[in-house]
Design a protein around this nucleic acid. Structure first.
Lengths: 162, 162
DNA sequence: CGGCATCCTTAGGGATACTG
DNA sequence: CAGTATCCCTAAGGATGCCG
């Protein structure tokens, strides 16, 4: 059946597999909750202030406070105090490099949701500023080849032996 | 500061934004838990049987049963009863097309975890079978251009007005 | 082997009210 | 505006035990 795939690979890396070392699990543990994910989405959209996060994500202030604190502690966001001349101090939350590199995760989720969880293709689209083309997250090898799921091979990295 | 980015775009799509229509949120709601994500990871690695999921993901049987049932109900996995001649019936869980298309999400998470949550670059690597090149999830527009975060533009889709 | 039933603990998240 | 303090509910997930 074409609807099921599996990663190719001669050796079975799952023997002696240490679940705690899995990068997928570790990445999930950092993001960790729905509210944190949506706060990151808003940060990508340019949101920077406490109240805007709570309002736009649709969560209560206590939850927003807890998630923002965790995200700062994890190094995904930085809090900056910022004062324009003659204005009161504003507190801004902004993405760090570490946080910004989660963008492909967000885009991949958006792609999937647009395709499988929306009637209409989703409320927003990402476009390439230069050419206007719609942007997606896709699998490419380091030589630039587009890689289909059945062309993947799973390899255990050196030093990752059981 | 180079470590913060924001999506370009002249109009602000967040006014009138309906949080429930967000594809990122909807996709997260389908996957929904850590254990479901790791079950999907195992499905990509070729795991198909109940006990293997529980053991390799590192979760209890009740949790595995609950997640597998949810994933089947969501249409990400199918359960097949399968009998080799002379053997007892085996039950297999396999990815559907809908589930298989979550692969870029998993790869993007793995990429991020390898880079930011592991000392050693992560336990496994994905390679392109044909050329051996390491595979990553990256942002490309429909014309094949590689798209950096600051080249993105957010556009409200037709019919997505407030 | 492939589950389900039960009990338990912890954490995510909403509501409300209050402070600097 | 940017939070904090309480209280409460629900769900994720482990442990144990049973069943076809």
């Amino acid at each position: 059946m074409a609807s099921t795939i599996r990663l190719a690979g001669r050796l079975d890396p799952r023997e002696g597999w240490d679940a705690d070392r899995c990068s997928v699990a570790r990445a999930f543990d950092v993001v960790h909750t729905r509210s944190a994910l949506l706060i990151l989405r808003e940060a990508f959209y340019g949101t920077a202030r406490f109240g805007d996060f709570a309002k736009r994500v649709g969560i209560s202030e206590p939850v927003a406070a807890a998630r923002l604190k965790e995200l700062v502690e994890s190094g995904l966001l930085v809090q900056e105090d910022y004062r324009e001349p003659g204005q009161r101090v504003r507190r801004l939350y902004r993405l760090t490099q570490k946080g910004a590199e989660l963008l492909p995760v967000l885009v991949a989720l958006m792609d999937w949701g647009d395709r499988w969880a929306c009637d209409d293709g989703g409320p927003v689209a990402l476009r390439h500023q230069d050419c206007g083309g719609v942007v997606h997250a896709e699998l490419r090898c380091e030589h630039g080849h587009r890689v289909a799921a059945d062309e993947l091979e799973l390899a255990v990295r050196a030093g990752a032996a059981p």
